[in-house]
Nucleic acid binder design. Structure first.
Length: 806
RNA sequence: GCCCAGGUGGUGGAAUGGCAGACACGUACGACUCAAAAUCGUAUGCCGCAAGGCGUGAGGGUUCAAGUCCCUCCCUGGGCACCA
């Protein structure tokens, strides 16, 4: 009798829904377990293999936790604002509101067909006014805490998406959505001060996160300890510095090399770059500043490109020895990092060295290796001992870094500081499909936040949302939206027309799931206290330095505002791997997309999900292969045959041992997301029953263990075996250590580390007995002929290694 | 360039320092069948008729014993990239 997957799956999905099996009672006294997957954005209208690969195994884990007695919450929702949804709408000539409603409806049906136990009563859709009202409220909380500010700055601009991008959304100088080259624009934009949280975001105490992800965030935050040093600018009758007492502050991590500084470099955007230029050099400097402004990031940071720069004519004074050094402007110095100015030490820095060589600037060695000598013709960039450095000579780099700063600190010419690569989070977007920024710009009062009682600031429907290439938000062309009154002075004012980065929506959605219908608050603090932080969060590693960082930032801000009692949102984080086709990422443009639908129709969702889990370790992903799925299909059919076969009277001790080994293995492997080996052990157990069959009692245990992996099959089998609905309300089987023990084992006999015999032996035999047994083996005897026995290594109940020599 | 992760049969992959290749795909042969498919059974790392030998990217080392630990190098994937 073949297992009829489609019918049976439909049957149980209906029963589960009717009986409300997947509706989590948030007020239950049972221990809570919050299992969450990163919610999808409904930009296409279908679930692809990546969704399945992410969601199905996570659901299996959640089902397992449920059987472990936890009150599991597994919610689902849609991240429906943003560029992908908007671009889809533009392409299909539909209003995004319509297209996402359609796509969500389709995806909901497909998600239900996976058989996952999502609690749809807690669904969240971020583009609904009921939701984005609170996203805007979040903005106001940050604003209140002085963590949101508007500033004119050079920002990343994607000419194709017609919007600015956060630093995190630029990859290799291109837009992470459309891969167009990103250019720079000077715009006034809203930022969040995530940099202020740099140090706290570096802490991962107690979090079960992949080391790799923590490292990626640490590298992205890029904390460096160093010092700022002030170089006074030499007054020159020819420049604008004269009489102003201006100074250049540089940032360095290598204060120990200060005596080797032979020039100072300003970034082209540095405010002093023009001022310091003398009359003679002014034209040249101006031209250089112009030319760098025209270049994009790629051109500016290209490795092959030679460094360029110009001498300003100005000089700065090295505070440690009063030496006058020339001031240059060069675009190898970044305006956005440190102070936008550096002291150049060509002898001990690769970049300064290359620049000094090109422009024939002096190179002065002030650090020597502790042992040996430095290589000729290249900079020595490691720590060492100081040379020709006045009273600091002979100190180690480490000591000198402390001493020199202390010395200059007394004269107020230096101080210890910390720099971060992390930049503040730019959240303004010049696009239509997002939550409007709740700010009113009043000609009298300036930026005024929209009062909380006036939220949400509704995104108008009737707007020509297609970008017109003027770099302005489409909302700017909607006077009904723009024209408003200032909440303070009641005079006429304009609304901010930019919308918020979608990452704002996803930075707090996990709080909303536990109280999704609340129209008085973003969430009920009692519910959040009970249900968060999230026990398990599963999603792709590509979010390491975006969503995951932003969500941590938001959580810390809400914690500081005493709105929530925890400051880390995700206790355990797991990344799924990527499914490829012929080694390549699946994409519509490559035409190598594998659709789950036909496989689900043919084999059922149980088989499909189990195959995805069986392919390899969950975190590794893998290459899709049509053929392998038959292995799982056979397993399911044979399982079904076993269920329906006559129950054996009694199981052999070996089969009982095998059963308990399987329970143990599956339990252990599921905990660490090694679903592939868990399934393999169930296959072994099934293989062991082909001759003997299985007793009813054992079958039930077997089916329970299988349940998280093949929920429909298990529920049907549970019924077939005469047990009461639902298998998911039963308790996960325990394995019995006593039953795992065997009276005999196979003694492995090695000679000089090579296996020469395997002897059945009784558990607990002594070394002497083992040697005796080994010597009786003909194979061992041949190997020992003419050799001297030197010693034996005996591993009880496992192995005997005989070491022999001539 | 820097920082991670990884390299195991024809394929996906498995192995707390203790039998390399579990489990599965594929392949071959057999059973069933008029036949095919499906199913079931047997075999399947490589060389060799065999005894045996060789095998976890390469080369060294530690150890009674190394896929696993250490060193050097090569390759693949991911992240960062003029961050001073």
């Amino acid at each position: 009798m073949k297992y009829q997957a489609p019918e049976i799956e439909r049957k149980w999905q209906k029963v589960w829904e009717e009986r409300g099996l997947h509706t989590t009672d948030l007020n239950s006294k049972k221990t809570k377990y919050y299992a969450l997957v990163m919610f999808p954005y409904p930009s296409g209208d279908k679930l692809h293999i990546g969704h399945w690969y992410n969601y199905a195994p996570t659901d299996s884990f959640a089902r397992y936790m449920r059987m472990r007695g936890m009150n599991v919450l597994e919610p689902m929702g849609f991240d429906s604002f943003g560029l992908p949804a908007e671009n889809y709408a533009i392409k299909h000539g539909v209003h995004p509101k319509k297209s996402i409603a359609h796509n969500i409806a389709t995806m909901e049906q497909q998600l239900k067909a996976t058989g996952a136990m999502y609690d749809w009563s807690k669904e969240v859709v971020t583009s609904s006014p009921e939701y984005y009202k609170w996203t805007q409220w979040m903005f106001l909380q940050l604003y209140k805490r002085d963590l949101a500010y508007r500033k004119q700055a050079p920002v990343n601009w994607c000419p194709s998406c017609q919007t600015v991008l956060a630093n995190e959304q630029v990859q290799d100088g291109t837009c992470d959505r459309c891969h167009s080259q990103v250019t720079k624009r000077d715009l006034t934009q809203w930022f969040f001060s995530i940099r202020q949280y740099g140090d706290r975001l570096l802490e991962f105490g107690g979090l079960q996160w992949p080391e790799k992800t923590k490292l990626m965030q640490q590298n992205w935050i890029g904390r460096s300890e160093g010092a700022q040093i002030d170089f006074e600018l030499e007054a020159d009758k020819d420049n604008e510095i004269r009489g102003t007492g201006e100074k250049v502050t540089v940032f360095t991590t290598r204060i120990d090399t200060l005596f080797g500084c032979t020039y100072v470099v300003l970034a082209p955007e540095h405010p002093l770059a023009q001022k310091v230029a003398t009359k003679k050099h002014r034209t040249e400097v101006q031209e250089y500043l112009e030319s760098t402004r025209r270049k994009n990031d790629i051109e500016r940071s290209s490795e092959e490109r030679e460094k360029t720069g110009v001498f300003t004519g100005g000089f700065a004074v090295n505070p440690v020895n009063g030496e006058k050094v020339p001031v240059w402007v060069a675009d190898y110095v970044l305006a956005s990092y440190g102070t936008g100015a550096v002291m150049a030490v060509p002898a001990h820095d690769e970049r300064d060295f290359a620049f000094a060589k090109k422009y024939k600037l002096p190179i002065r060695t002030v650090i020597k290796p502790r042992v040996g000598i430095a290589k000729e013709g290249e900079p020595f960039t490691e720590n060492g001992l100081l040379l020709d450095s006045g009273e600091f000579t002979d100190l180690s780099s480490e000591e000198a870094r402390m001493e020199i700063v202390k010395f200059l600190e007394e004269q107020k010419k230096a101080r210890f500081t910390v720099s971060y690569k992390l930049r503040d989070w730019l959240i303004s977007r010049q696009r239509y499909w997002g939550a409007p920024i709740p700010i009113i710009i009043c000609p009298k009062c300036g930026d005024v936040p929209v009062p909380e009682k006036d939220l949400p600031v509704i995104l108008p429907d009737d707007v020509d949302f297609e970008p017109k290439g003027d770099g302005k938000s489409p909302l700017a062309s909607c006077p009904e939206f723009v024209k408003t009154r200032c909440p303070k002075c009641k005079g006429p004012a304009n609304r901010e027309v930019d919308t918020m980065d979608t990452f704002m929506c996803s930075s707090w959605y996990f709080l909303r799931y536990v109280d999704p219908q609340n129209d008085k608050a973003a969430f009920d603090p009692k519910m959040v206290k009970k249900w968060l932080p999230i026990d398990l969060y599963v999603g792709g590693p590509e979010h390491a330095c975006m969503h995951l960082l932003y969500a941590r930032f938001f959580t810390k801000v809400l914690y500081d505002a005493k709105l929530i009692p925890f400051d880390e949102p995700f206790t355990r984080l797991v990344h799924q791997g990527m499914i490829t086709k012929d080694g390549a990422k699946m994409s519509k443009s490559k035409g190598n997309v594998v659709s789950p639908d036909s496989f689900v129709t043919q084999y059922g969702s149980d088989v499909f999900r189990m195959y995805l889990m069986f392919m390899g370790p969950f975190t590794e992903g893998g290459d899709w292969n049509d053929r392998g799925i038959t292995g799982i299909a056979r397993f399911v059919d044979r399982m079904w045959t076993l269920i329906n076969a006559l129950h054996a009277e009694k199981d052999s001790p070996e089969l009982v041992r095998e059963l308990h080994q399987t329970i143990k293995k599956v339990t252990e492997q599921i905990e660490v997301f090694h679903f592939n080996t868990a399934i393999a052990s169930m296959m072994e157990l099934l293989n062991a029953t082909t001759q003997s069959g299985m007793s009813l009692k054992s079958k039930k245990l077997f089916v329970q263990v299988l349940a998280p992996f093949a929920p429909h099959l298990a529920e049907e089998a549970w019924e077939k075996l005469g047990a009461e609905f639902s298998i998911f309300e039963t308790t996960w089987p325990k394995f019995d250590y006593k039953l795992l023990q065997s009276a005999t084992f196979e003694l492995v006999v090695q000679i000089n580390g090579k296996v020469r015999a395997k002897i059945p032996a009784e558990v607990g035999i002594t070394k002497e007995e083992a040697i005796e047994a080994a010597l009786s083996q003909p194979g061992v005897q041949t190997q020992l002929k003419g050799k001297k026995r030197l010693k034996e290594i005996f591993v009880p109940d496992k192995l005997l290694n005989m070491v022999v020599g001539e």
